[in-house]
Amino acid sequence: MFASLKNKIREETGSDLSKLTAKITSSTVQKIESIRGRSHQGSTSSLNSIVSSEGFREDGPIEPEELRRRLAKLESDFARKLEQKEHEWKEITRDKDNRLHALEHEKDEAYKQISNLKEALKNAEEFKLKILELQENTEQLESLQSQELSKVKGLVLLRDQELAGKNTALKDALLQLEKLRSEVTRLRRQEELLSDVQIM
């Protein structure tokens, strides 16, 4: 988290946080040490220039104790602002992390939906193939049934023709039989007549 904050500060300010903090702190420490190293009778103009550079402007000389107090306040304000900025960056980073996690979750959900859609598409394709196969089998079955029906119809027609032929032959045979019976009856009558003639 802190590394992300440092990176963000580096992007915003163009320098590293640690270097920036060290630079500011070093500058402040140098000023404090400079003040501590001077006597109470030191250069008033130098002290005034340090205080002026930190935002304080005095017309007259400044007591070293007052100067230390003001520098301590400046350090405290700087530390407070730095902590506030760090807190703000943490909030920004936390917000970005939350959004990143949300996007990661949305991405995972999207991948799941894509996977489900691919599976559904695969099942649909398989079902389509099964339907086409079933249709093909049904068409083949209907074709076979039609062929078998045609064969049965042909056999029935052939049998009908054979039966018609047999009926015709039977009728002819019956006519021949009737003729033969008539001929037999006629011959018997002639035989009886011949017998009667011989007796006489």
Rank of each mutant, 00 (worst) to 15 (best):
I62V: 14
I62F: 05
I62L: 13
E63F: 09
P64S: 01
P64M: 02
P64V: 01
L67G: 05
L67M: 12
R68T: 10
R68Y: 14
R68K: 08
R68W: 05
R69G: 08
R70G: 00
L71Q: 01
K73C: 03
L74I: 13
E75L: 14
E75F: 08
E75R: 10
A79N: 10
A79T: 09
K81I: 07
K81T: 13
K81H: 12
L82D: 03
L82P: 01
L82C: 05
Q84S: 13
E86C: 02
E88W: 13
E88S: 15
K90C: 06
E91V: 12
I92C: 07
T93W: 09
R94H: 11
R94C: 05
R99Q: 06
R99P: 00
R99M: 03
R99I: 07
L100V: 04
L100P: 00
A102L: 03
A102H: 00
L103H: 03
H105M: 15
H105C: 09
E106L: 06
K107W: 02
Y111S: 14
K112A: 11
K112G: 05
Q113N: 11
S115E: 15
S115K: 15
N116K: 15
N116E: 15
N116C: 07
N116H: 14
E119R: 15
E119H: 14
A120Y: 06
A120R: 12
L121Y: 05
N123R: 15
A124H: 10
A124T: 13
E125I: 14
F127H: 15
K128H: 11
L129D: 15
I131R: 06
L132R: 00
L132F: 01
L132G: 00
L134N: 08
Q135C: 04
Q135K: 12
N137C: 00
T138P: 00
E139Y: 09
Q140M: 07
L141V: 02
E142C: 04
L144N: 15
Q145F: 11
Q145M: 06
S146G: 12
L149R: 13
L149C: 04
K151C: 08
K151G: 02
V152T: 07
G154F: 04
G154I: 04
L155S: 08
L155K: 15
V156E: 07
V156N: 05
V156L: 12
L157E: 12
L158H: 11
R159L: 13
D160V: 01
Q161Y: 08
E162D: 09
L163T: 05
A164Y: 04
K166W: 04
N167M: 01
T168K: 14
A169Q: 11
L170P: 00
K171S: 11
K171H: 09
D172G: 01
D172P: 00
D172T: 02
A173P: 01
A173S: 12
L174C: 03
Q176I: 06
Q176S: 13
